[in-house]
Amino acid sequence: MSESLIDVAAPEGAAPRPDDEPDQRRRPGARSALRRGKGLAGVLLIGVVVALGLLAPLLAPYGPTEQIPGANLVGPSGAHWLGTDEVNRDVYSRTLYGIRTDLVVVFLAVPIGAVIGILVGLVSSWWTFTDVIAQRVFDLVLAFPTLILAIALTAFVGPGLRTVFFVIIAVELPVFGRLTRTSVRTVREMPYVEAAHVVGAGSWWQLRRHVLPNSWEPLLVQLAVSMSVAVFIEGAMSFLGLGVRPPHPSLGSLIRDGVRNMYDAPFFAVGPLALVVALVLGLLLVSQALAEARRS
């Protein structure tokens, strides 16, 4: 889904057309924004983290839950780059596998929440009745701080990756719903939407062909922001023990383990922390680059 979002935002047409007139200034699209400066830095940071996660089975010297006899809380060394934890597991391997959990959350839960939110936002903004209902529901969800919501949800479904998933969807859905509604409301007043209406196009046609494509850009920026927030949510929930259940690793739970053993093994949390920082920073850089491209 995230891939197709980017496709729509940067329409084709970069191919040179020789018969064109002087005024050929193309607005810098989303794509070119990611090819330079901040955008590029962000893409590289995300790329490195994603690559590490995807290639974990090849890169990791040990399994994520494999216990190595005799290596208890040892420091970084040639054999264990990031040392081992209190139950003799290789932190480097666990960290690599932990990335995968976060990737699932970032690149699956957020887009799912976004898509549902966008659909609800679209439907709600088009008719007054649905609008009132959807907006009040959004108000309700947004009234809860994320962590309170997470704790409440955990009380019902119990801790686990699934809960993290639900929380992220629940948090992101109203965000995207609201944003979609706002940009749709702006775009639908444009004369070209009216022009389609006069031609005889129905609501669905107007939404699909005109309103949605012209509302993408703010949503794309929000997607990058929300993805970085999702990394935080996963981290916080796992840190509190609401997230991924042990022994399965995630960046959040690794940080928690690291903090618990901070006095015995201060190096422990460094790896996962650095990766969280890289991922969040990368996503924020991308969102900034996209937002700047939109403004110019």
Partner: peptide, 27 residues
């Protein structure tokens, strides 16, 4: 058919000229 005052606003910026002219036929 209806012709708007401001042609800049009444043509969808994402549509090519061909798509814009064809739209009524598509609809």
């Amino acid at each position: 058919a209806f012709v708007h005052q401001d042609p800049e606003a009444s043509l969808d910026p994402r549509f090519t000229v061909g798509e814009a002219i064809r739209e009524p036929l598509d609809v």
